[in-house]
Design a protein around this nucleic acid. Structure first.
Lengths: 359, 359
DNA sequence: TTGAAAGCGGTACCAA
DNA sequence: TTGGTACCGCTTTCAA
């Protein structure tokens, strides 16, 4: 009988049927100019022989060239630098394809992203990776890019209802939910907790809050949530608002900082001599957080795996483009919970940009 | 000037130097039959033009065939089935290579692995992926396989000091450390904790215990550790020993089950009506654990990401073989901590074997 | 020591 | 509707 384990190529099919490889190719690829019955015979034989295209040959012949634009903010660099590094690593690892990746940068989410995206319209990119800070304001440009044939992939935060082809991010709702559960483990008595976020128009920030509030209500009804504080990703505002929060009449015993931009908040806590006294859950990981986790001043941080996000985003976008837009990735990574006991596992990737074991 | 962004191929170098592509190829690959000075000129020009080999063409021409053996136990299937699935997925995703993967199974760690490995000696595999249950007993066979030119990669547990070419596993020490820290969060008063492991001869099980004990001593000196219980991965023994433990004179208030084989232990706890009363940290995730995490009977489980381990192990082995054994992977994945609030992120992969977003 | 040429397995064009 | 064939970039063999 035929050996199904030994996969065969286009030539084997042609031989088995006594036809030419040209015809086989046409039949296999929905191309015009094949009679329905030869096509059927080819497809059947392909199935029988276990046809597997030689991707190397395919890549060699097609020699696809793709142009990808990456439009991401400079701030917060703790997050977006490794994200970019992940994209670069994935781009370097592609086989048999000429992919040109161009990076565009703007100051911060919501400041200059729209303009940079609009300028891409005329460049005819095959794909764009970007983070929708304020999805509402960007729906239109996504729409126009899509109309121009540019595949738009959201990373780090979603723009639901837009014409983006997919999403790669950390699971925001779960991040919020985890923060609530972690605080509930340490706060067993009736008290208040607070949360400081970046920008509630950003979808993933709102999702984190949803997860936080819902889980608090379910797992820890004794903890009541103070009104949310939005820092708008501005260090000074974050600091000022935190001070105001701490001077308010109801003092929180637990705090969830749902943006990577946590330093100003921590500085305020430090100055109020509250570090180590109230329970703090932060987001992401960077050098300055390390000693605070080690000493227990921070209970845990929720690591959104920016490097992996970048890597997966790039791979997903390429796959989408190569498979003729049949796939539309919706990938939400599980955030890593970093306590002091597993902190060493994550600190080595802080200085350089490498991530050997993609954990 | 030359455009460094547009990478060039072997032909460009040949043209620029007015020599043939054959010579360029020889110079580039340390092959014999090139005069030192043409070689130098080629190398210099390659550098100048930014030579990047077309991997698709290379793969097409070389058409490498590799034979890989995977030798893993049937038990514990919660762990090893997804591990195998990860290997399969990675194998299917390889481009331009004919890789034949053969799976061998034996009942459980330490029972039949040696024999199965010895039988591979005559098969001349390019590489073997396997889990060293008892490294001491397997050092010799690893040594002999290596001598035969077979690259041996350890997965899930290490065999340090052997001639294995590398390792892919969850970071065992950190798993133990995490378990200790999690228990310390919930147990603030002076009491006892216990741990149930599989087999202490297995390196990673011993590592988990080390991490657990060390972290307990550091972060929670008020918790004292009862003597370790070894289940030897046998359900009945695990059950019996747990009952004995619970009937001992000092009752533990916290329990760390460091093997995926936790069901018999949990059954014993259930029968003693201790579920939900003492703090339990388990290992890995499978269907039966889900409701216990949801209801808080289990505080958390430490997910060793078997699917990812398999995927990364296969990729690392292939890379090692293709790059002429220059790399030797030592990859320790960060385990995922699964609480009830992030449980939904992990449950979808329990039934099928797919793992779309490789989180 | 070097050059020329035959493929590897597909795709795409031209001729029949 | 089909068959035949040039070509993608690299490796390798055979001649020069």
């Amino acid at each position: 009988m035929n050996n199904p384990s030994k996969s065969s190529g286009i030539k084997d099919i042609a031989n088995a049927l006594g036809i030419s490889i040209g015809t086989v190719d046409r039949a296999l690829h929905e191309r015009t100019g094949v009679s329905p019955k030869t096509k059927a015979r080819v497809l059947q034989m392909a199935e029988k022989l276990g046809y597997k295209p030689n991707l190397a040959a395919q890549a060699l012949k097609l020699n696809r060239r793709l142009e990808i634009a990456v439009v991401l903010p400079k701030q917060i660099s703790h997050f977006f630098d490794p994200l970019r590094a992940g994209i670069r690593a994935a781009a370097d690892a592609t086989v048999g394809m000429h992919i040109k990746v161009t990076f565009y940068e703007y100051p911060r989410l919501g400041q200059g992203d729209l303009e940079l995206l609009e300028a891409r319209l005329k460049d005819k990119y095959d794909g764009i990776i970007f983070t929708p800070g304020n999805p509402r304001k960007l729906e239109s440009i996504i729409q126009r890019l899509a109309a121009h044939g540019t595949a738009v992939l959201c990373v780090a935060s979603d723009a639901p209802g837009s014409r983006r082809i997919g999403l790669v991010s950390a699971h925001a709702y779960s991040s919020g939910a985890l923060a609530a559960e972690l605080l509930s483990h340490k706060l067993s008595r009736k008290t208040h907790v607070a949360t400081i976020t970046g920008e509630l128009t950003t979808f993933d920030h709102a999702e984190k809050l949803r997860g936080f509030a819902a889980t608090l209500a379910m797992l820890a009804p004794h903890l009541s949530l103070l009104p949310v504080v939005e820092s708008h990703e501005r260090p000074k505002e974050a600091y000022r608002q935190t001070i105001a929060l701490l001077h308010g009449e109801t003092k929180p015993q637990g705090l969830y900082i749902s943006t990577a931009n946590s330093l100003p908040v921590l500085r305020a806590l430090e100055e109020e001599d509250l570090l180590g006294k109230i329970q703090v859950v932060t987001t992401d990981l960077f050098q300055e957080l390390v000693p605070m986790i080690e000493t227990g001043k921070i209970l845990a941080t929720l690591y959104q795996r920016p490097y992996t996000q970048g890597k997966v985003a790039f791979e997903s976008l390429i796959t989408h483009l190569l498979e003729e837009r049949k796939t539309s990735p919706m990938i939400r990574l599980a955030p890593h919970i970093i306590f002091r006991s597993n902190l060493p596992l994550f600190t080595d990737r802080l200085d350089g940009l490498a991530d050997p074991g993609r954990s």
